[in-house]
Design a protein around this nucleic acid. Structure first.
Length: 614
RNA sequence: GCCCAUGUAGCUCAGUCGGUAGAGCGCGUCCUUGGUAAGGACGAGGUCGGCGGUUCAAAUCCGCUCGUGGGCUCCA
């Protein structure tokens, strides 16, 4: 049994109080489980009554009463037989008996009692309910019993609890603050992207400002690709079903693909025959009719490029890169802003290598991912090394090859000099992988950069190169994407910066604020000088007071403001107000300003101040 | 896909007991020409997500549907 921290004890106890209150109000309720979590606690209930917000309030009221009664938490150990009878006495047989069965033979079975309520529970708990100084029920959500979608769906009540009211208030305020950083909110405010009902769920429209950010990021990657010996390619958005039959993506992953595109004549023919839907999908699977698939992955296309020529061992590694857009039919409930979508562009590349090059190449890929993260100041990520489960037989390729690959990944990740976790059984069926995982503002984790070894596709496509022994050899493939997908990465990036992008990424890098219309010609002169250096700049020509223009530029999160008044125009200077680097504030010549900003852009400096935006 | 919630102007939201719509921001015009986070006046803008039902009457009640949010399941 794991010792619980004091905070976990409070939360765990709050979960029991929640169950106590629910049973008082709705005695017919069947309880499942109620553990503490990172940010609070939950309890799963099976109840006829839908827990609406009003009901939730009543439950919260009842919980307050329970706490006020200052019930004592008492531990009680029981034999298996006693445990069964306690559960039966409580009338909680539906789920609790199953939970009891989960406890291995020989382990202590314990219950915790508070007031009239008793629950199968390993502990631990606070001593009295009054120790729960501050709690709040947050929301209700559906959840499957044992996390299995074929099981009954229960109602999960989420809440949080703290040792003091102040901490609770702070926590709730932080949640409010986090909501303001939500990429969906900022994306709308700053005109970065739009997801349109009529275009389709999970299909991102990049608006002009968002497109600039994406172009800058793609440019950054392209620069690195050129340095590191990659070749960029372009491939189409659809390919024949046969291609994906060979790769195994069709029909194996059919559920998460847009349905195939079938030629009109073929459809007419089938209609004449009175072909049913299931017959059609049968024929598609068997390959009796062909069609096209919106590509769910870029690899098969890159593989066909590799295979279009003969390769010598001297040519390897061959590194094919593409910003390749793929389409996957994600479940509707899973879609989320830009972080989970149905069409997305991977900053993809496939490396065709000799086995002896594996470690070096993985290392190269990892250092690229690391460079991306450090350039953007994203240091709050975790690295997950996903290995195979030695017990399972779902994996392709020889065990020796896996061992080598896993060893190579381990060695490569060690050279990064960062912490990482190994997770058994998390590998893809075709090879082990390393993922960079980042949290969003609400604490949800998203996989961004990824490096994966693949033994499967070279086999399926019968890839080969000619070795020094003049014989054919099978290359190994590496899939890698430093950003993962442009959509998800931008979503996370928006939240990371809270919209205050470093100047090199900012859609509008400089805004000129003339005090009045007479100064417009001078403002235009300054604008030309900025634009001559490829600096994205604009002039606020609105008839408004300076304060209002500054406010607008601040809320638009423009890195640099150039204020122009009579004084500046007479002296041939400008007055800089900079949110990305307040050290630069003050009067400068326009030439010096252009130089400073151009330097900031080319060095990809991170913002120096993080003023919270209003 | 499933559970719950939700959908009113470009955005954020109000709209009581069912009596056919309101604010702020933004936008437009005019006035104002200013010194580091909001000057002022006037004006335009809505088939209340869509379809159907109940009703003399529906933004409001009911059903279906589409979208969104929070979870669950999933993520090659």
């Amino acid at each position: 049994m794991k010792e619980m921290s004091p905070l976990e004890e409070i939360r765990h106890s709050a979960a029991h109080v929640l169950a106590t209150a629910v049973l008082r109000l709705y005695p017919d309720t069947q309880l499942d489980i109620g553990p503490p979590t990172d940010a609070g606690f939950y309890y799963d209930f099976d109840s006829q009554i839908p827990f609406s917000p009003e009901v939730l309030q009543q439950i919260e009221e009842e919980m307050r009463k329970v706490i006020k009664e200052n019930q004592r938490f008492e531990r009680q150990e029981a034999s298996r037989e006693e445990a069964v009878s306690i559960i039966k006495e409580m009338g909680q047989t539906t789920y609790k008996l199953g939970r009891l069965d989960d406890i291995p033979e020989g382990e202590t079975i314990s219950f915790y009692r508070n007031g009239e309520f008793i629950d199968l529970c390993a502990g631990s708990h606070v001593t009295y309910t009054k120790k729960i100084k501050a709690f709040k029920l947050l929301h209700v959500a559906g959840s499957y019993h044992r996390g299995d979608s074929s099981q009954k769906q229960l109602q999960r009540i989420y809440g949080t609890a703290f040792a003091s009211k102040e901490e609770l208030t702070q926590h709730l305020e932080r949640l409010e603050e986090a909501k303001k950083r939500d990429h969906r909110v900022i994306g709308k405010d700053l005109g970065l992207f739009h997801i349109d009902e009529q275009v389709g769920q999970g299909l991102v429209l990049w608006k002009p400002n968002g497109a600039i950010i994406r172009q800058e990021l793609e440019g950054f990657i392209t620069e690195q690709l050129n340095k590191q010996g990659y070749s960029q390619v372009y491939t189409p958005h659809i390919g024949k079903l046969d291609l994906y039959r060979t790769s195994g993506h069709f029909p194996y992953y059919q559920d998460s693909q847009y349905p195939p595109i079938i030629h009109r004549e073929c459809l007419d023919e089938l209609a004449k025959e009175g072909c049913t839907c299931s017959e059609l999908s049968n024929k598609l699977e068997k390959g009796e009719i062909d069609g096209y698939l919106l590509k769910p992955m870029n690899c098969p296309m890159h593989i066909r490029i590799f295979k279009s020529e003969q390769h010598s061992y001297r040519d390897l590694p061959i590194r094919l890169a593409e910003f390749g857009t793929v389409y996957r039919w994600e479940q509707s409930g899973e879609l989320n802003g830009m972080t989970r979508v149905r069409g997305f562009t991977q900053d993809d590349a496939h490396l065709f290598i000799r086995e002896d090059q594996l470690q070096e190449e993985v290392q190269g890929c990892l250092s690229l991912v690391k460079l991306v993260f450090s350039t953007l100041g994203m240091d709050d990520y975790r690295i997950r090394v996903s290995l195979r489960d030695p017990e399972s037989d779902k994996y392709v390729g020889a065990v020796e090859a896996w061992d080598k690959a896993e060893a190579a990944l381990r060695e490569a990740v060690k050279t990064l000099g960062v912490n990482y976790e190994e997770e058994l059984g998390e590998a893809a069926f075709y090879g082990p992988k390393i993922d960079f995982v980042v949290k969003d503002v609400i604490g949800r984790e998203w996989q961004l950069g990824t490096v994966q070894v693949d033994y499967n596709l070279p086999e399926r496509f019968d890839l080969s190169y000619v070795g020094s022994d003049n014989k054919d050899h099978r290359p190994v493939m590496i899939h890698r994407a430093p950003f993962g997908s442009m959509e998800r990465f931008c979503g996370v990036l928006i939240e990371h910066f809270g919209g205050n992008f470093p100047t090199w990424l900012a859609p509008e890098q400089v805004r000129i604020l003339p005090m009045n219309d007479e100064l417009l010609p001078y403002a235009e002169t300054c604008l030309h000088q900025l634009k001559a250096k490829n600096i994205r700049a604009g002039i606020d020509k609105q008839s408004a007071k300076l304060g209002a223009k500054i406010r607008r530029a601040e809320t638009d999160k423009i890195p640099h403001m150039i204020v122009i008044g009579k004084r500046e125009a007479e002296e041939g200077k400008i007055s800089l107000r900079s949110r990305s680097n307040p050290e630069l504030d003050g009067p400068h010549s326009i030439e010096a300003t252009v130089g400073l900003i151009a330097e900031e852009i080319s060095s990809k400096s991170l913002p120096k101040s993080r003023k919270p935006s209003s």
